[in-house]
Design a protein around this nucleic acid. Sequence first.
DNA 1: TATCCGAGTCGCCAGTGGAT
DNA 2: ATCCACTGGCGACTCGGATA
Length: 344
Amino acid sequence: MSTLTLPSDYPQFLTELKGHIRETQVRAALAVNSELVQLYWRIGRSILQQEQQQGWGAKVVARLATDLRTEFPAITGFSARNLRYMKAFAEQWADEAILQQLAAKLPWFHNCILLDKVKNPTERTWYVQQTIENGWSRNVLAAQVESGLYHRQGRAVSNFSRTLPAPQSELAQQILKDPYTFDFLSLGAEAQERDLERGLLEHVRSFLLELGKGFALVGSQYHLEVGGQDYYLDLVFYHLKLRCFVIIDLKMGEFKPEDSGKMNFYLAAADDLLRHPTDQPTIGLVLCKSQNRVVAEYALRGLSQPIGVAEWQLTRALPAELRRSLPTSEELDAALGESEPPEA
DNA sequence: TATCCGAGTCGCCAGTGGAT
DNA sequence: ATCCACTGGCGACTCGGATA
């Protein structure tokens, strides 16, 4: 590397930039943490309601833990013990607005400590404020509670000026490293595009089945053989009302013109190999998962002209009887958006 | 590379309270 | 009085990062 004379203000510039990056990291981690804590709160509240209305007890909760862990093996935190924490958490933070403002800003285990050790709501609120304000780690928080800091110097409610932990604080560091948040996103070490794709497909599958608009699953990674070549369709449904097959192809990335060509080919193959003479022409749906959003476009081979790129704007021109029976692009977009990690 | 240390999870157990 | 279900809290265990 050749020597380079840096501008005199470069060090300051770099320092500022690093500060921005760290602060954004904390914001992102906090957003995920907040979602996670709120999810736990909602689970806890649901359990509470079931207990009150249906007389659920610990046995059902234990079973729930087993079932959740079977369904989400990659996410820790669904032990019966943790579900009990969630219930207690929902009980102690009855007000959702206050929860979002305070408790959702602390890592889950900080909240567990407060659940165990601080029974008085005012006192607990004070400790949450102090933790955010001073960036206490879990141990510091536990030590402060045990030493009775609230009784020694508390009571005067803090003005609570800081809403975000300082990036360099221990609290911020813990939120950044919190394995819960990574588990929650299922973005651990093995997180690869294929896993994301599989997860998204699973999401689409259950969304369409739950939609109750007449989708029946024929298969996922459905095998078709055309001219001695093997092809695998991401998802194949049969639509009971429309009496036709619906093929779904998921793309990670922006929509590309060749995707339409490929779908056109799939539609032709499905019409030849799957379609019964009384069935309507097969419908294709391409879901493109770009960086920020999901783009869903329908393809109809039954239209007079072959599919070109222009036809990928078909959603708006979809015949009325089809529109009633198929989820709109917006619905799909919204449903798939739910599986997104929260915005940083 | 081995060891230590701290964070986080969860199992276990004692205490409590309600039902019989 | 006894049993059973439930809760709260402690601490053992695991894992990952830091340090020598």
